[in-house]
């Protein structure tokens, strides 16, 4: 091969890593600026708080990313989180052992994901529609189950988990690592991960190459449902209640994190570290804006502008300009 060809290999291979580094640099930059701008930012308390805030969206964003890579979308994750808080709260209050209560809640998440897969694969519904339908109906079912009330969880051990830390790092952040590492291996080093990409790029070509397209789609939505139910458990632990209206709009934050992290809504482009960084960038902006007493309305505007800017630059670089 000519020297030209070898020179071309470098940037291509490192593109993902490079984009990740850029995001990381952006995150660090934000932290430095905020530490200078407001003394309370760098306090141990605030950092733990920020990590807790970012962690739940980060986990949602990972599940969401699997779905987006296949060319789909999962609008239901916020509602699943709310619904899962209700399930886990009811189970614990009914005296079910914590471990079992969590397991059942996670299975509910899996079941919802399978339902999405069914709707898409067997009924031929667009992902946008089926997950939108779940979004509204799950909130309704949750409200019916609770009569519109919050359920306070009367189990201190359960709540203690999300408030404590291990090695000085909040447990919730450890959960990101617990999800992130297997997710990374799954997406980048297993054939299932390759299949997610190939289905997102061209389902027909994948099918003819022997990829089980239907199973791949089931898998993506199931993983997203599972991540959402897991976040529901964490949220219930953190706020100590089960309430179906919790986590309003989190699906959009998860999608935003994913997109900021370099995922393409057209499918076939994405990573695990990208959405994680994206989620913490969003959390930092919210946290910093709070500390700086920036009007909450402005926070939303800033987030919107940021999404446009980051995705625009990412697109420019991909086209190699």
């Amino acid at each position: 091969m000519s020297t030209e060809a070898i020179a071309a290999e470098r940037p291509k291979r490192n593109y993902n890593a490079l984009f990740g580094l850029t995001l990381l640099a952006l995150l660090v930059l934000l932290w430095v600026i905020l530490s200078v701008a407001t003394p309370s930012f760098a306090s141990a308390n605030n950092i733990s708080n920020l990590l807790r805030q970012g962690s739940m969206i980060a986990i949602l964003a990972v599940g969401q990313t699997f779905v987006i890579i296949t060319g789909g979308i999962d609008l239901s994750v916020g509602a699943v989180v709310g619904f899962a808080t209700v399930i886990v709260a009811m189970l614990i209050n009914a005296g079910v052992p914590i471990f079992l209560a969590i397991l059942i809640t996670l299975l509910v998440g899996v079941a919802i994901g399978l339902f999405h897969g069914f709707g898409i694969v067997k009924m031929g519904l667009p992902p946008f529609i089926i997950t939108l339908a779940t979004l509204t109906s799950l909130r309704g079912i949750g409200l019916l189950m609770t009569n519109g009330n919050s359920i306070s969880i009367n189990n201190d051990a359960f709540q203690l988990f999300s408030r404590s830390s291990f090695l000085g790092v909040p447990n919730l952040f450890w959960m990101v690592i617990l999800v992130g590492i297997p997710a990374y291996i799954f997406l980048h080093h297993s054939r299932w991960g390759r299949y997610l990409f190939s289905v997102g790029s061209n389902a027909e070509a994948s099918r003819l190459s022997g990829v089980n397209v239907q199973r791949t789609i089931y898998m993506a939505y199931t993983l997203s449902g599972l991540c959402a139910a897991f976040v529901g458990v964490l949220l219930a632990s953190r706020i100590g209640i089960g309430n179906p209206t919790q986590a309003e709009g989190w699906e959009l934050q998860a999608i935003a994190s994913s997109v900021i992290g370099g995922t393409s809504l057209f499918g076939a482009v994405g990573s695990v570290h990208g959405p994680l960084l994206g989620a913490f960038i969003l959390a930092t902006i919210n946290n910093g804006a709070n500390l700086l007493n920036v009007n909450a309305f402005w926070q939303r505007i800033i987030t919107g502008v940021l999404i446009i800017v980051i995705v625009y630059f990412d697109g420019l670089r991909r086209r190699g300009k």
């Binding site: 390759r194 190939s198 070509a205 994948s206 190459s209």
Partner: peptide, 21 residues
């Protein structure tokens, strides 16, 4: 274009798609 290739994925992934197992 329609049936043979995942155009926006790497050449290597396309070549290996049937044999990942």
């Amino acid at each position: 274009r329609d049936q043979g290739l995942c155009l926006n994925l790497p050449v290597g992934l396309n070549l290996n798609l049937p044999i990942y197992k």
